[in-house]
Amino acid sequence: MTGDKLVVENLNAWYGKTHAVQDISLSFPDKRATAIIGPSGCGKSTFIRCLNRIHETQPKARAEGKVLLDGADVYADDPTEIRRKIGMVFQRPNVFPTMSIYGNVAAGLKLHGGYSHDEMDRLVIESLKKAALWEEVKEKLDQSALQLSGGQQQRLCIARALAVQPEVLLMDEPASALDPISTARIEDLIFDLKNQVPVVIVTHNMQQAARVADRTAFLYLGKLVEVAPTRDLFERPAEKLTESYITGRFG
């Protein structure tokens, strides 16, 4: 039995006057993928963005509560260090358009510094392999990242996040802007990745949650309704609300 890598206690978050996340407590075990599902506007994106403190970089955004990474409060540490330890992949691929493929993956390493040339090369290649992109780009590492397809760009973003060796990987609807084939590749990837690093994935696609996640949490109107092993949540939901949602009665 592995311990909990990331523990959230009484998290509240606001956008201006909107109370987007209301008193959520939730823990994420090591080496597991946890999915967060719920209808749009339920606060799942805001919730995940609080975990690496990127929520607070938006104007008028605010968060309160505790997020513990290996027992240490994320909100008591330097946010830049937290964001290195807790990587994130966003809804739409956001490669750096002026950088090469190599440059994109190495961007985080260069920021944090202290890597030799060889070490950096090794980490870049390793990350591209982990992101299942290496075979497609190994001949053109110095070309612009913009010429990759959308799915490839998203895997490049995953490689970029993995390169700084995060301890947790957050994914905010990582496949919502992709075609079905690219989506399948990303899902396979998540399935492999969770053995190395715990993954928290936000998705509005219940099939996706069922395919990749060990555990699933259901959020509704900013509140946590239920969290359970994925199978249990979909087959024997404890809450009426969860049942209505997964049977498609609303959302």
């Binding site: 964001r83 994130m88 944090h112």
Partner: peptide, 20 residues
Amino acid sequence: DSQREAALSLGATRWEATRL
């Protein structure tokens, strides 16, 4: 904004995020 967030999520400082 996604560009700023890409840099921030890698652990960039505010200046580094602006530069990247």
